[in-house]
Amino acid sequence: MDETGRQPRRDTTVPMLRAIANLARFHREHEAFYATAPRERAVALQRSSRTMLALADHWAALPPAHPAPLSPFEDADDLTSPAAIQLSGVVFAEGQGEPVEITRLKRELRVMADDSLGTCDWLVSAMQASWDAAAALLDLDEFADLLGERHRIISNDWQAAHLSGLAGRLLRRATETLDRIDFSPEALRADLAGDATAPRRLYSAAELTGHAADLLSDSAGLVHDNERRWRIFRARVASLSSRP
Rank of each mutant, 00 (worst) to 15 (best):
108 E>Y: 00
108 E>M: 00
108 E>I: 04
108 E>F: 01
108 E>R: 03
108 E>V: 03
108 E>D: 14
109 L>Y: 00
109 L>C: 02
109 L>T: 01
110 R>S: 01
111 V>M: 04
111 V>W: 03
111 V>H: 05
111 V>N: 06
111 V>T: 10
111 V>C: 00
112 M>H: 06
112 M>Y: 01
113 A>C: 01
113 A>R: 01
114 D>F: 03
114 D>P: 00
114 D>R: 07
114 D>Y: 03
114 D>E: 15
114 D>K: 08
115 D>V: 10
115 D>W: 01
116 S>A: 15
116 S>R: 02
116 S>V: 01
116 S>C: 04
117 L>R: 12
117 L>Q: 09
117 L>C: 07
117 L>D: 11
118 G>Q: 11
118 G>W: 12
118 G>M: 06
118 G>R: 07
119 T>H: 12
119 T>K: 07
119 T>I: 09
119 T>D: 12
119 T>R: 09
120 C>Q: 12
121 D>W: 04
121 D>K: 13
121 D>R: 11
122 W>N: 10
122 W>V: 10
122 W>D: 11
122 W>H: 13
123 L>K: 05
123 L>M: 08
124 V>Y: 03
124 V>I: 06
124 V>D: 09
124 V>N: 04
124 V>G: 01
124 V>F: 02
125 S>P: 00
125 S>A: 15
125 S>T: 14
125 S>M: 07
125 S>Y: 04
126 A>Q: 12
126 A>L: 05
126 A>I: 06
126 A>G: 00
127 M>Q: 08
127 M>A: 00
127 M>W: 01
127 M>K: 00
127 M>R: 06
127 M>S: 03
128 Q>D: 14
129 A>Q: 15
129 A>T: 09
129 A>I: 07
129 A>S: 13
130 S>M: 11
130 S>K: 08
130 S>P: 02
130 S>W: 06
131 W>D: 14
131 W>Q: 11
131 W>A: 14
131 W>P: 00
131 W>C: 04
131 W>K: 12
131 W>M: 09
132 D>S: 12
132 D>E: 09
132 D>P: 00
132 D>H: 10
133 A>F: 12
133 A>M: 08
133 A>Q: 13
133 A>H: 07
133 A>W: 08
133 A>V: 05
134 A>T: 14
134 A>W: 05
134 A>V: 05
134 A>H: 13
135 A>L: 11
135 A>D: 13
135 A>K: 14
135 A>N: 10
135 A>C: 07
136 A>T: 13
136 A>W: 10
136 A>H: 13
137 L>V: 03
137 L>A: 05
137 L>C: 04
138 L>W: 06
139 D>T: 09
139 D>E: 14
139 D>K: 08
139 D>F: 10
139 D>L: 06
140 L>N: 07
140 L>E: 15
141 D>W: 11
141 D>K: 09
141 D>Y: 08
141 D>V: 13
142 E>V: 15
142 E>Y: 10
142 E>L: 12
142 E>G: 11
143 F>C: 03
143 F>M: 02
143 F>V: 04
143 F>D: 05
143 F>K: 03
